[in-house]
């Protein structure tokens, strides 16, 4: 469905594999992800103690200006944007703010802030609500704060479509760039690990059934291929096709490009929900590939992108 191929020129990645492209590549080479008992909350109450956290994450290192309050989901998102923008060496001054865009996906958003708001209202009444925590509890808060941080005045949607959220954000972002609507798009997804999510998964029996919840933030810099050539920048990979469908993803790929091999993850990093698809795409690029289709099937439908190596 893309009107033209789209270049990936930067990757901002924080996951159980580490922070940044190099750390991720090293973790992939060693075959190990950071899957351990959670440290962000006391998991001893629950039947299973196993999750994928971003190791050694310090939010202050990744923001341009001091912040009075940041939800972990937003902090991870800002960090991914920070890494992606620098990785792509984007020429900010040359791009009008209305031609900059962000397309973000998250299944659960700012759960810690939602808990803080509701717990306080339930225990101390409506007048106790904090306006700052409330405004930071919105699921579009990560994208909005990134838009403020990076002066983005073009499209900045948030997709909250469960496991398909990051895929929908990526497909939409690629479509924006391919259509010529924007100069670039920071596209991807975030999921932050938090106790309510862990508790709910435990109660539903999903942890006991083998699900390892993981957190991750992955933002890709997407640009028109021609623009990248004009500015002499490096292309990490090209997205030659991207689609969503109700069918299974293998059927989706077969319809569009039956000769493309399906990519599979080399390391078990758990499941990063709304960030899972951009994480797969990024790892596929980091591991190096000639041509491959990254796919995902969910209850809301399927997604697929075809990645090509830069020649």
């Amino acid at each position: 469905m893309l009107a033209a191929p789209v270049a990936v020129t930067g990757i901002g990645i924080l996951s159980p594999l580490g922070i940044g492209r190099e750390a991720t590549a090293e973790a992939l080479a060693s075959g190990r992800a950071n899957i351990e008992p959670p440290t962000l909350f006391d998991a001893s109450l629950y039947g299973t103690q196993r999750a994928g956290e971003v190791p050694g994450f310090a939010p202050k290192a990744f923001v341009e200006t001091p912040k009075t309050y940041l939800d972990r989901c937003t902090a991870l998102t800002l960090a991914a944007c920070y890494l992606a923008v620098r990785d792509a060496n984007l020429p900010w001054a040359e791009s009008a703010p209305v031609r900059r865009s962000i397309s973000h996906g998250t299944a659960f958003g700012c759960l810690d802030s939602m808990v803080a708001l509701t717990s306080r209202v339930q225990s101390s009444g409506a007048r106790s609500a904090s306006p700052i925590i409330f405004s930071h509890s919105f699921i579009n808060a990560p994208a909005s704060l990134a838009a403020i941080e990076y002066s983005v005045r073009g499209p900045a949607p948030t997709f909250a479509s469960g496991d398909l959220a990051g895929a929908e954000a990526l497909v939409y972002g690629a479509s924006l760039v391919a259509s010529g609507a924007v100069d670039f798009c920071l596209a991807g997804g975030t999921e932050a690990l938090s106790e309510p999510l862990y508790a709910a998964l435990d109660d539903a029996g999903r942890l006991a059934a083998g699900l390892t919840p993981a957190e991750a933030a992955v933002m890709l810099v997407l640009e028109p291929v021609k623009a990248v050539g004009d500015r002499g920048a490096r292309i990490l990979a090209t997205i030659s096709a991207a689609a969503l469908a109700g069918e299974a993803s293998e059927e989706l790929v077969a319809i569009g490009a039956s000769d493309v091999p399906l990519w599979s993850a080399p390391v078990d990093w758990g499941h990063a929900f709304g960030a899972e698809f951009p994480l797969r795409v990024s790892v596929a690029i980091i591991t190096g590939l000639e041509r491959a289709a990254v796919t995902m099937d969910t209850e809301l439908g399927a997604a697929a992108v075809v990645l090509e190596a830069t020649r």
Binding site: A107, F108, G109, F138, I139, N140, A156, P157, T158, F159, A160, S161, G162, L164, A165, E168, L244, A245, G246, E247, E299, L300, G301, A302
Partner: peptide
């Protein structure tokens, strides 16, 4: 959670296309 509604729409209405949720 946010995807409860599109998930139910797919199930209840028997939708064969993709479903999504945008929140701005």
């Amino acid at each position: 959670v946010f995807d409860e509604t599109p998930r139910l729409m797919r199930k209840v209405f028997g939708l064969r296309g993709p479903a999504g949720l945008i929140s701005i």
